[in-house]
Amino acid sequence: MCTWITERIDAKGAARGVPEWMNVTAINVMYDHPVRAPYDHALLLDFIDPARGVGARVGIELSAATARELVRAIEAALASPEAVSDLAAQYTTDPHVETSPNRSTSVGV
C-alpha cells in the first residue's frame, strides 16, 4: 500500500544528474575531495551504470553532517512495515543478493 511517509532533512551539498531515467547497476561511496560542494572533503555518492559509459551517472556530494542525517533518514524510512517485509524477502529470494557479492571496498592509492 502507499505509505505516504516522507523523511526530509536539510542538506548541504551538490549534485549533477541525467535528463532521463537510467538504470543504476552500481553505487560508489567515497569520503574524499568534492568537485562542486564547498568542502575540503565530502561524502561522494555516484549512482552509475558503467556498461553505458561514464555519463550514466548521478553524482551527489554531501557534507559529513548531511550524510549522517541522510543515513538516519534512510534507516527511518526502512523501518516502515512495508520496507521490513521487502527487506526480508529480498535478502532471502533476490538472486543478485543471494549469489553475488553486493559490496566491496577498494583503495585507490
Partner: peptide, 9 residues
C-alpha cells in the same frame, strides 16, 4: 566530472 568520477573509483 563524470570521467574523473570513473577514474577515481
Amino acid at each position: 566530472a563524470d570521467i574523473a568520477a570513473a577514474g577515481r573509483a
